[in-house]
Amino acid sequence: MDHMTRINLTGWDDALAPHNLTPDHINNITGDPYDHWSIARREIHHATQHVPFIYRRALADQPDVRAWADSLTAASRDQSTGRVTTHVGRHRSLLLLGPTGTGKTHQAYGALRYLAPTGIAWRWTATSSADLYAALRPRAGVDSETEFRRYAHAPLLLIDDLGAAKTSEWTEEINFRLVNHRYENQLPTIFTSNVLPNELMDRVGDRVSSRLIEMCDRVVIKGTDRRRQAAA
């Protein structure tokens, strides 16, 4: 997208507010296409295009989720000192746990929307565990290792519903390889899972759960199933 292009910021007022930004800030400040504001516009455009429609107005209103996002932003700026473009820094990950329908995915996409206006080139990738396995399943014409690297090396990654799919040796190995790579390289990742903390090992295995416990800030989201309430 050309750095002079104006973008539609409908639905972004609440996401911009915590950063003391307004749509006019994003649209009117021009200059080097890699400056803070141009990057912010591009990231907002990316989020507008890639956040699922149902989460298009998602907000990170859990204090611990926003605190993690603020810490990631600060670390990324510190580690990018002297660069024209600020890239994603090495940082702890985020693990959102709780029963189905309590708003974990809402918070996860809310965090991505919250990060978008900060002037950092996040270049995030998002998928569910089920879609991840589908993308990596061996089939004609697809290099599974190339697909795996796309997720493993993503600067910022969201994996939704970790541990929800039926486990097998193959899915366990995928989980371990992905989590271990991001653990060893301190690549920030947002995980959601509909398990309680004491059930995590049973769902994803001890090797994965051990790394998740060490690498992640953990947020437990409680409550009832919002989807059932909305349908009632």
Rank of each mutant, 00 (worst) to 15 (best):
R149M: 09
T30Y: 09
T171P: 08
R207G: 04
D143I: 02
T127G: 04
A232Q: 08
T125I: 07
M1E: 15
L21W: 10
G223T: 11
M215Y: 10
N194D: 13
Y34M: 01
D32T: 08
W124L: 02
D24Y: 00
G82D: 12
W124I: 07
N8E: 10
R41S: 12
L72S: 01
H181C: 00
T30G: 05
D202G: 02
R150I: 05
H50N: 05
R149C: 04
A126Y: 12
H25T: 12
E199P: 06
F191S: 09
Y55D: 02
D64C: 00
L156S: 06
H153V: 11
D161T: 15
L115K: 14
D217L: 15
A154M: 08
G101L: 00
A231Q: 07
G98V: 07
H181N: 13
G205R: 01
D206N: 13
I54Y: 12
S144G: 15
A108M: 09
L59A: 04
A108C: 02
N20W: 00
T224V: 13
N27Q: 15
A230E: 08
T171E: 14
T105S: 09
L136A: 08
R83K: 07
R182W: 02
A111V: 03
T86R: 12
L178T: 07
D64W: 01
L196V: 05
D64L: 03
N27Y: 07
A116M: 10
R57W: 03
I29V: 15
A40F: 01
H91W: 11
R6L: 06
C216G: 07
M215E: 12
S168M: 05
M201C: 02
V51R: 01
A111Y: 03
